[in-house]
Design a protein around this nucleic acid. Structure first.
Lengths: 138, 138
DNA sequence: CTCCTTATTGCAGCAGACTGCAATAAGAGG
DNA sequence: CCTCTTATTGCAGTCTGCTGCAATAAGGAG
């Protein structure tokens, strides 16, 4: 919980709800929707609602503890940021998502930093396109 | 308008509304929201509504004529896809958007193709992070 | 030019994501 | 341990983006 202690600076509070959201994300693993999280938390907090969950997720995202991704299913999915980081390739045809290693994105981040001084924050990317199987057909 | 003729295959129709959306995108140039497009079209089509505009934009996007991007302002923005393609760096601190050349993304697309057979469709990317000015302060 | 098939529009309605405000509770200070 | 400040929650409401359905119109056939 050391990374959370850092966060407690500047008057930001580590509430039971925030702790529970993080724990739920750890427990479930992989991609989770805000709605799913809300349901999971209702056991401990019967009155919790999606508004609060979305706010907590934004807060966690701002502290790089959670990633938010649009994988093209019409709902945003959230995932605990862990090392090593990984990203996703999303097939526009069969809608499969393929995990891809962070190192593919390092050259891009490095180039943007060197040439433009831009410090890219690539926690979790979703690249759309066509997977090997579907690309053949096209 | 030759690119539009290709689209007319397979029974897809080139309606006045679709033509008008494309023309409005050309006229306005740069990033436009669906709401703005809807307003612009109401002169010619008094009864047009956002539902239709969103559907037309999805259709144009599917044919690679228009790009859809989340630049972090809470609304999706649309832009005519033109050559050379460009992408955007979005500063999480000052919210400035910086245009960046397509060539920065070529190595990534090539690597994904070679190693994984994935044919990335990178029409218009938005990379979040901190711009040179804001990165210094952090 | 007219008819006919069916893709597309307009409309109304819905889910996802977010926000303002009053009530609550985290955590610093005494 | 109690008090106090104020960040956060719960709630209700809003806006964006999308979808089903009946009415309309694109564009191919005759």
């Amino acid at each position: 919980m050391s990374e959370l202690d850092q966060v407690r600076q500047a008057g930001e509070r580590l509430t039971r709800q925030r702790r529970a959201v993080l724990q739920a994300l750890d427990t479930q693993g992989g991609h989770v929707t805000a709605e799913q999280l809300c349901d999971a938390l209702r056991g401990e907090f019967p009155h919790i609602n999606t508004g609060t969950v979305y706010r907590i997720l934004q807060w966690l995202k701002g502290h790089s503890l959670v990633s938010e991704t649009d994988v093209g299913i019409g709902v945003k999915v959230y995932e605990r940021v862990c090392n090593p980081r990984h990203h996703h390739l999303v097939c526009l045809n069969c809608h499969r998502t393929i995990d891809v290693d962070d190192r593919y994105f390092h050259p891009l981040a490095t180039a943007l930093k060197q040439d433009l001084g831009f410090q890219a924050r690539i926690e979790h990317f979703a690249v759309f396109g066509y997977c090997a199987d579907c690309a053949r057909g096209k």
